[in-house]
Design a binder for these strands. Structure first.
Lengths: 233, 233
DNA sequence: CAGTGGTCTAGACCACAAG
DNA sequence: TTGTGGTCTAGACCACTGG
């Protein structure tokens, strides 16, 4: 309205956020529609749309055609987790990275893995166990199964030079992934590989990735004690 | 080019994705600029922009003014984690929810907590320990500190009726949060509260939330054995 | 059926940063 | 300096869905 105003979608977004946080617009309440806000803010409707769409994507607004836009009742808190290549994660901390292939073989997977990989009974997969070290100390080990049919070239790749983790990221595009985070108790095997005590609590990530045709790989990462995964909103 | 084409930003996005996945455009390689793609796809530049911006946000493209747009070299895998109210999480599984306040007191926090809460030495905070149960069995317990200055009304709230978790979400808006996921080994205290064995690996979430003025609360959630946090891309 | 958000367009100007 | 993405606009039509 007045002179000197600055109308970007971020300005609109900031003002909307202010009204939500100040309870001027309360959870569950409808807010004015895009056209009205555009008039109020003195900008195009598209600009308001951009601002509100971003807020809806982050879970603070609930938008529906015809119904309108309301402040989310249960502001779903979404945190985006970056899942890095292990080497980058370690080197990013200023530590040296090294990895060792503990075992590599072709084998028919157990039922649980087979279900996750969606392969037929009897089909053999590549089974890899790799230990990743930071400054020479065990950091995490990965127990991985790879569907060699879905991954051309894996048979001839030198997985001692470049870890399967990194090789796959660099060479095999994927469309979807599935992550589970949990904790486990170190048994004899984990204690030996990670050089920790039996009975210690360990952080575990299980991850599968797939493309349109296949489940490409599934891996279980077991981290040495003390590992912390961090994110912010 | 030909007739009968359908140009939405999602169509453009899908085609760009196809070219990335098929390695027609390789990681690190520059792709044509927006104007060129707009001509190729027979749509407005804004439409191309929308498609490419979305892909950049999800980490598959790397865009810079003047430099141009390239396929991300290290496709950052981003997963969005929803951080739910514990009651909803439990009820969502079809289990019954109940919670118990194990202790509630005002106290000066230990140094670690004080650092996270950014309060002055000697300032007292509310300290709450709450156990959440699913179908009557321990599910998770929260050890929480609340900055009462930042949370008007908390003193008089009935935290037996509604857990602090839920009360805070419903009543106190926040602008930022900080999450850490890790594992710990159950000691005597955890074993007793969660009715598990000493030495079991437990999944832990530490979370702080803040607004412009204060750190509002920090909580450490320790889950009963077997808890799994899940997400997809 | 009609109101709301979703999207597209053509054109314009701007901000940034590579060379 | 100049090419590229970033954004804004005014207007239009469409898709969905509540009433």
């Amino acid at each position: 309205m007045s002179a000197g105003e600055f109308n970007s979608w971020q300005t609109v977004q900031a003002e909307v956020l202010r009204r939500i946080n100040s309870r001027e617009w309360r959870p569950g309440e409808f807010i004015p529609n895009e056209a009205e806000l555009a008039v109020e803010f003195g900008c195009a409707r598209a600009t308001v749309n951009r601002a509100l769409r971003a807020l809806a994507e982050s879970g603070l607004l609930d938008r529906r055609r015809k119904a309108g836009t309301r402040v989310a009742l249960n502001p779903v808190r979404k945190a985006t987790l970056a899942i890095p290549v292990i080497r980058y994660e370690i080197e990013g901390k200023g530590q040296s990275y090294r990895h060792t292939v503990l075992s590599k073989q072709r084998a028919a997977p157990p039922a649980g893995i087979r279900a996750r990989m969606r392969t037929e009974p009897g089909v053999k997969l590549m089974h890899l166990v790799t230990l990743h070290l930071a400054d020479g100390k065990p950091y995490v080990f990965g127990d991985r199964w790879i569907n060699t049919e879905a991954v051309p070239g894996i048979e001839t790749a030198d997985l001692n030079a470049q870890s399967a983790n990194e090789w796959l990221v660099a060479n095999i595009p994927f469309e979807g992934g599935d992550f589970t985070f949990s904790a486990m108790t170190a048994g004899p095997r984990e204690a030996e590989i990670l050089a920790c005590k039996e009975g210690e609590g360990l952080f575990v990530i299980e991850r599968s990735t797939w493309n349109a045709a296949h489940v490409i790989t599934t891996v279980r990462l077991t981290f040495a004690p003390g590992y912390r995964m961090h994110t912010e909103i």
